[in-house]
């Protein structure tokens, strides 16, 4: 999030961004994707999480090569396709869009996610906010920021 915020405000070359990128790459799981925390505890590699992976991929857009993050994309896409929750949808889409991975059926998927509120109850404001951001960011967060800077939104 800090990387995205600094990038969006013209500080992509700040030393703290470089440090954060190094940390994110260090926390990449060998089998693909990111956990929200460590990589290994007591010798066992932790499981990746789609929301944490989407967040890392969004932050790494333009900072590393595609080869560096391909295993993350390979993990995320099937998880994204089968998940119907606001958080995973939002960060999944933002991560995949940042690297130009084509995704179809967005509107239908969002409708199915919203329909689940009939059983699960209303989503909170942050979940709905994330959904709105993801819906309006087909080129990732940085694409959205550029649009906003151009006054296109």
């Amino acid at each position: 999030m800090a990387v995205l915020a600094l990038q969006a405000n013209g500080h992509a070359d700040h030393p703290r961004v470089s440090e954060a990128v190094r940390m994110l790459m260090d926390r990449r799981l060998d089998h693909g994707g990111w956990n929200y925390g460590n990589t290994v505890v007591f010798g066992a590699e932790l499981d990746p999480m789609p929301d944490a992976t989407g967040m890392a991929l969004a932050a790494l857009q333009g900072m590393v090569s595609r080869d560096d993050i391909q295993s993350g994309l390979d993990y995320l896409l099937p998880e994204f396709n089968q998940c119907l929750t606001p958080q995973t949808f939002s960060w999944g889409r933002l991560g995949l869009a940042a690297w130009g991975v084509p995704i179809g059926g967005i509107d239908q998927k969002v409708n199915r996610i919203l329909d689940r509120q009939a059983r699960l109850g209303s989503y909170d404001t942050s979940a709905l906010g994330q959904l709105l951001v993801a819906l309006n960011a087909p080129e990732g967060i940085m694409g959205l920021v550029k649009k906003m800077n151009r006054g296109a939104i």
Binding site: Y36, G37, M49, P50, D51, A52, C83, L84, T85, P86, Q87, T88, R116, Q117, A118, R119, L120, G121, D124, S126
Partner: peptide, 30 residues
């Protein structure tokens, strides 16, 4: 763990029995 609570409900199988009208769920983290 800092992750998607609804996805955890889905993966655990609990979302199949959650129903806001009969057996509602509260995310105590938030």
């Amino acid at each position: 763990h800092c992750t998607d609570t609804i996805r955890t409900l889905d993966q655990s199988g609990l979302s199949a029995i959650i129903d806001v009208r009969k057996l509602p769920f509260v995310d105590l983290n938030r």
